[in-house]
Design a protein around this nucleic acid. Structure first.
Lengths: 343, 343
DNA sequence: TCCAGACCTCAAAGCGCTTTGGCTTTTCCC
DNA sequence: GGGAAAAGCCAAAGCGCTTTGAGGTCTGGA
């Protein structure tokens, strides 16, 4: 069923039917009602490409997910992020176009997406330290929102939604210090990513303001896998002076830490304390009623919702000022932290 | 830059330029070359909506991800599935449209997608026992491929790519029986899902052919979370006759089992054996060089690739016969299984 | 009664592309 | 050299929608 058919069926012109459906005031309420009913009855939905062609607006946003070619890993938080964003898209009747792009060919991919003209805006995932994508998108003139940030310099010149990574890891480190820990390991994400850099800063800040030093041999950086958590922990435990507490950049890394401690015959929360960062993923809940892991928690799904909302704004009025949302993580006390063991 | 501009620039008609770019034989190689070069140089990409309108083909496939409203969980395997599928889409120059649909409104969502006419085919995720979506899509006449299956009756009447769930769990169970285990717990997924039903069957078959019984109190079914693995395991351990081995439907559930055993002071692979199903997710690798968990393994990313390939075929020639691919899972021996303890 | 102004409705153009059908030029073979 | 076939190119229609500019009808005030 298309507009033409529907309108002849109703004995009206396409114009009138189109206007009735799109809420224009030039059509009487009686007519509008009739049209609406008929549309519903015949399951009519405007052809989205035709509408896009006519209006120049697609009602579609793009999500470009970088695929680390080195590690072949897609960031698992993206599932929940998307789930959050699509709540908004569903409400606003937007579609979501997904592109997974090997990180080598990113620039080209963005240009292509822009040239194809099938999306009204994009959400940028996984920003690196000084991510060229941001300059590129600004140059192209495509509305976008970044999930995360990238560097400091031009932060005010684009919209972003980020978690306060620095502060979260500073608080977590502080918490461990308050418990008496002095040697604290950090299992960070890849430190070419902005979020990892910021977390490292928070960690360092807390140590320094407590008069402690950042020990290189306690700082790891890698793709966040269980295996990484496991092997890095074992390595640290084998040190002359092993850490009494560990900070892990994700709950999955935390699983690996748990397994390593288990293997080493150490009791988690007693012999070694552990704090993880918890993205509050739906399929990786940190416990049901009470938290398992002591964690810094910030819902990535919520971030998805906010990003989507801001992008919608930006699309409907590109002249609107840029928006910046900094979400604070909560510190949640679970069963994996305790006072530093006396030695 | 659009076709018109490009063609006047070249001093050719739109027809010729279009044909040159799309590889039609009516244009000389010399001209084609010139056109190609100019297109590249000016970064010309055909407007995808316009092309869609003209051809009726969108070069876009839809993925409809069900969101369990009851549990608010998006299946985490879908990240890797998508990554696999997009390798194919990238190669074939297809786009991917994503829709996350609360499971209550699925039928409506599919109809809407069809009416909008923005995709040439869809991939159906997470089929339930007798999934109405399949009949619906056939009625609508939209090409589709199911990741998984749904019931037995009409399996030959649509294309699907599935893992041999029954056989995988039968083998795993058999393996445990061979190790001397007699009481084997099953932490299954939600048993309204086809895959979970099939796994249960495999488990039961192996028990029965070994002359054992399926004990109701050892069979769990739920959304596959870490917490579920933890609490179900604790419950089973509290039984009068606890299991000596556990089968978990995902590696995440396996993490929970590990934690429970840890809490109970039991040694995994010694006091209690564990086999998990491993979807070979990029961010949840079951160990690096050697596997950690004994597991049935089948790459969901591979399944994504195959689904996408079949869908491409189906779209380019809808009369082609349906295809059915049944992937066999390997049984991988890790460190979580051992002989049943003497009691 | 007449006309301005609301109020509705419509025909047609245009979005950027593909494709049909036709035209001109070249090539080939007898 | 002549005719037919092949090669190369083009104008124009059409995909389904929105939107402009114009027209028709109805009301109410002068």
């Amino acid at each position: 069923m298309n507009l033409k058919e529907l309108s002849t069926l109703l004995g009206l012109s396409q114009t009138t039917v189109s206007r009735a459906l799109n809420g224009y005031p030039e059509v009487s309420e009686v007519t509008r009602d009739k049209v609406m009913k008929a549309a519903k009855q015949h399951n009519y939905t405007p052809n989205i490409r035709a509408r896009g062609l006519a209006t120049g607006r697609n009602h579609t946003v793009g999500h470009v997910i970088p695929l680390s070619t080195e590690h072949e890993v897609v960031n698992p938080v993206f599932t929940d992020f998307i789930a959050g964003a699509s709540e908004i898209y569903a409400r606003e009747n937007y579609d979501m176009m997904l592109t997974i792009v090997p990180d080598k060919t990113e620039a080209e991919a963005y240009r292509k997406i822009a040239a194809k003209g099938s999306v009204d805006g994009v959400i940028v995932h996984g920003p690196k330290a000084n991510d060229p994508r941001i300059a590129l998108l600004r140059e192209i003139g495509m509305p976008f929102v970044v999930h995360g940030r990238s560097g400091i310099a031009e932060e005010s010149e684009y919209s972003w939604v980020d978690m306060n990574n620095t502060r979260a890891f500073e608080r977590a480190t502080q918490f461990l210090i308050d418990l008496g820990h002095r040697r604290i390991g950090l299992l960070n994400g890849l430190e070419n990513m902005d979020f990892a850099i910021k977390r490292r800063e928070g960690y360092r800040d807390a140590l320094i303001s407590a008069g402690l030093k950042e020990h290189k041999e306690l700082c790891y950086s890698s793709e966040m896998t269980e295996e990484y958590g496991f092997s890095a922990t074992l390595e640290m435990l084998a040190l002359h002076k092993p850490p009494t507490a560990i900070l892990a950049s994700s709950i999955i890394v935390g699983f690996g830490v748990r397994r390593a401690l288990d293997t080493a015959g150490l009791k988690i929360g007693k012999d070694v304390s552990l704090i993880v960062h918890d993205d509050d993923l739906s399929y990786l809940r940190n416990g049901a009623a009470e938290p398992i892991y002591t964690a810094t928690r910030s819902s990535v799904r919520m971030a998805g919702r906010i990003c989507a909302e801001i992008l919608m704004e930006q699309i409907s009025d590109p002249k609107r000022p840029m928006r910046h949302v900094l979400l604070d993580a909560e510190l949640i006390i679970g069963h994996t932290t305790g006072p530093a063991p006396k030695s």
